[in-house]
Design a protein around this nucleic acid. Structure first.
Lengths: 300, 300
DNA sequence: ATAATGTCTTTTATCGTGAAAAAACATTTT
DNA sequence: AAAATGTTTTTTCACGATAAAAGACATTAT
């Protein structure tokens, strides 16, 4: 079982949704661009669609025969990347408690437990190491540094530094920059969400990420932009884990975002700075209150 | 050839140097701690030392029989880690020119060219990606972003942000912090180097790194400390590549460091800020002048 | 002539395997 | 009893192999 065909399965599922919209499918290169996969994969998808009677396929003509049924879709869990699977397992262990700082991480054990090869686990750990939560001992095991208060403080310190700078850069962008239109769109989405917050508060975190990424992009600095990956990752798992007062928190945050957006649109650096600080302060507070305040272990 | 024994060879070479100093070697665990390897490796080393008549080994007694000769050492190139080998090859290609931004990086080709397995190359590229010079296209090749002017500017922007903050944190450290002693030692090393700069200017870059790392450590922020790896890596290869006016540049830098150290010792935040800015400005200038100013490619 | 399809080649992603190195356990020595 | 040595087990590192996916080339249709 050297490589799973999740790319094909995921693209196939997304391809099924196209069938609802049209009577016939576009050309293979076009489909490839649409689904973000190569023609090779597209042809495998088309072959199966033909086989299951979804389309009639003859060279250029790809006529839709019937609408896809639920059973046509591949199961969700078969469409995940290996690294997604590993990440989820790893984070579950990490957040499930019992993951004390200083603990050793065993590649082989992890691989066996998840049921994958060691190579994939190694590569995951290397990628993951940039989040600052684990560290490699040369020629030996990884060490867990722990999702501690210190970690959260270090993370938010950088976040604040970067975001204040990005926000200032954003406000200084010329009138005709396309980001202002993006910001308007985001503002509208925020307003809609604010109105229906009671029912849709759990949609906030996705909006949050898009908003902050837009701002960070104004820095035109790859290190700042990339650092948002660390924040996004932490917040993603943090929110899965800590649902306390989620609605209230998100409601407050939406309000802060709107104030922040207004400040940006005013192009008044003082106001931008104040609104940004205000929001980051409460984001930090939220993160910190959710971390159990156990003493950090001494560094070995 | 599944794994080279470079750990053993490197530790063996370092172990040989111990023979000059004593008549008999310490216990196995002690040797392990000294050379930073496991007892298993120590025993392999001792076995060979016995075989080649360097020591007489019987349980606890490890008597030195003769001084090591040049031919006792393993060749330098056999002591390198695979990742060092790959890094060197990769950077040579990157700096040797012909490495335009936007160029594709082929794992298989790299592996074949260097004569290693693909896994090692993949792992290297993943680790290397945090330097911001390459980027992965999902399920496909890596893309070289290029060692461009933009890169240097983004790098130095972060560097300046981080170092100003670290320097301020450093100056605010209490009198009894051990860092002041470290700083005194470094200051003395700088003075010695300044005196003999004509002959020893090439020793500066190592001192430079130690100095800046000491300052960054005062931030107590893992992201700041880790970021220095990016800077160190860039400067390391940059200096190998660009030897123009090396002596003059280093002479100036030593002077700036001494002023910077004096400012830190004064604990006057204004002075620290000024000295730090002054030094970082000339560091940035040095880096920028060495980069050919070819137009950056449009992002795809 | 351009753009699609059909076919073949190359590259990436992942695994199992085996030697190097670390770590754990058992035994001996001081 | 503590610390060393001797022995065994486990883990890390790196490779070659193989299926999935991408990409390149050849052919055909508009």
């Amino acid at each position: 079982m050297s490589k799973s065909n999740n790319v094909y399965k995921d693209a196939y599922n997304r391809g099924l949704r196209l069938l609802d919209e049209t009577k016939s499918l576009p050309s293979e290169p076009e489909l490839g661009a649409l689904l973000g996969v190569s023609r090779t994969t597209i042809r495998t998808i088309l072959a199966r669609m033909e086989e299951t009677g979804l389309i009639a396929w003859n060279k250029r003509s790809k006529t839709v025969l019937r609408a896809p049924r639920p059973e046509d879709f591949f199961p969700e869990e078969e469409t995940d990347t290996l690294s997604q699977i590993i990440e989820r397992s790893f984070m579950r262990r990490l957040l499930a408690g019992g993951a004390e700082a200083g603990m050793q991480i065993n590649e082989l054990e992890l691989a066996r437990e998840i049921g994958v090869g060691t190579t994939s686990v190694r590569e995951f750990l290397i990628r993951f190491s940039r989040f600052g939560l684990i560290e490699k001992r040369r020629n030996s095991h990884w060490v867990l540094k722990g999702f501690t208060r210190a970690f959260a403080l270090e993370l938010t310190e950088i976040r604040e530094m970067f975001e204040l700078r990005s926000a200032a850069a954003f406000a200084a962008l010329p009138e005709d920059s396309p980001v202002w239109a993006d910001l308007d769109l985001l503002e509208e989405e925020h307003r809609v969400l604010a109105r229906e917050i009671a029912a849709r508060f759990n949609e906030f975190s996705e909006l949050d990420e898009r908003f902050h990424r837009l701002i960070h992009r104004a820095s035109h600095n790859r290190f700042i932009v990339d650092f948002y990956d660390v924040i996004a990752m932490i917040f993603h798992y943090h929110y899965q884990w800590n649902k306390a007062q989620e609605r209230e928190r998100n409601e407050v945050a939406v309000g802060e975002h709107l104030a922040y957006i207004a400040a940006l649109k005013s192009r008044n650096l003082g106001k931008v700075d104040a609104a940004c600080r205000m929001h980051l302060k409460s984001a930090r507070h939220t993160l910190l209150t959710s971390i159990p305040d156990r003493a950090a272990l001494p560094q070995p």
